[in-house]
Amino acid sequence: MKLNMDINPLVSVIILTNPFRPAQLTIDCLKSLEKQDYSNFEVIIVDNASPEEEIKKLEIFLKNFKLNNLLIKNSKNWGYAEGNNIGMRKSKGDLICILNNDTECDSNLISECVKVLISKRIYGICCPKIVYYDHPNLIWYGGGKISPFLLLTAIHKGIRRKSNESKYNILKETDYACGTSIFIKREVINKIGLLDKTFFMYYEETDWNYRAKKKKYKVIYVPSTKVYHKIPIHNPLDDFQYFVHCRNRFLFALKNFSLIQIVFFLLTQLFWTLIELFTNFYGRNLNRLKVLSLGIRKGLKLGFRIRKKQLNHVR
């Protein structure tokens, strides 16, 4: 459905490059944006210190890129959180869309998400259905669940389920919108702030969603449009990713959960950590044990430090 472009809000699309991936991913993502049925948007590409030859490829493409765009070149890799913050600080839109560079999207992505967000004042954040690029009939994100009883605290719903299942084709409120493709109103950002750069990557968007919900905004899952994520169906984390994931789930919980939720979270993590310790020890994966231990210790240290600051601020 096309909207009346005269009354549509300006949307700022932020695309952050991954310095460890080729520029062609970003170029293909930008090409899919050229097909949007919504015209009132700007594109801000934030390069997170990619190799010079990859930046040149991107710059050559942008010379003939049809859309209003800005390329920001960072001198170092700021991670997902601060990298996107840099783009948002330069943005002008009433709505912000953060879109992973390893994605392509339906032509109605922006129009559908805009239509949902402007339909109710209480709608602050939304996210489309996200499927695997190589297996577009399978869901990667069909809504999100946050709970202190979960191992990962925040999980995607519908992962690897059929995209045409009716339960994943209903517009509905969800616990969090996935950072792979997230739309947020500027008025929400003005109240809750930008992404927390402490996270670097992983859980920063979960934290963002949680802060918005505390301000009584709703997070909406929009299945009427899709983003195609170029990620393998089985995508094990490397040691650095595993460390950050472990650290940040503790950081997220200690920063955001109530006291009783933190108690349940720590008990749940103790149970799952014992299983992980046994599994890795039995499999003689001793390096993974070190990474797990370091991630938990760093997460507890950071989390309790932030919690203490929050309590002091309240006093």
Rank of each mutant, 00 (worst) to 15 (best):
A154P: 06
I192V: 07
V227A: 14
I220T: 01
Y202N: 03
G143K: 02
K197V: 08
K230T: 09
S147Y: 11
S166E: 12
A177M: 04
E173D: 06
Y217A: 03
S181C: 15
Y203M: 06
K145H: 14
W208K: 02
T198I: 14
E205F: 04
R186I: 01
P136G: 09
I231F: 13
Y221I: 02
K197L: 01
L152G: 10
L151H: 13
Y221R: 13
L150Y: 15
K214D: 08
Y133S: 15
K216D: 03
K145W: 07
Y168S: 13
I159K: 14
T206M: 03
K191W: 00
G193S: 00
K145A: 09
V188I: 07
L237H: 10
I220C: 07
K185S: 01
R121E: 15
Y123Q: 07
F199K: 01
I122E: 12
L237D: 10
N209C: 15
P136S: 12
D134M: 14
N164S: 12
W140T: 09
T225V: 06
P136L: 07
V188P: 00
P223S: 11
R211Y: 02
G158Y: 01
L151A: 12
I192S: 03
G124H: 00
D207Y: 07
F240Q: 08
R186K: 15
R160A: 12
P148L: 02
I182H: 03
F240E: 13
K215M: 08
D207S: 09
L150S: 11
N137S: 15
I125E: 03
K120H: 10
V219S: 03
M201A: 11
N190F: 04
S166N: 11
N209T: 05
C126P: 05
S119R: 02
I130D: 03
K215S: 05
P136K: 09
P223E: 10
D175Q: 11
N137M: 10
I122Q: 12
L152K: 15
G143M: 01
I189R: 03
I182E: 00
Q241S: 10
E204F: 04
S166I: 08
N164Y: 09
S166Q: 10
R211F: 01
C126Q: 00
I130T: 04
F183S: 04
I125Q: 08
D207I: 00
H135Q: 14
E165V: 12
K226Q: 11
Y123S: 04
K185T: 00
L171E: 11
N137H: 12
K167P: 06
N137V: 08
P148V: 05
I139S: 08
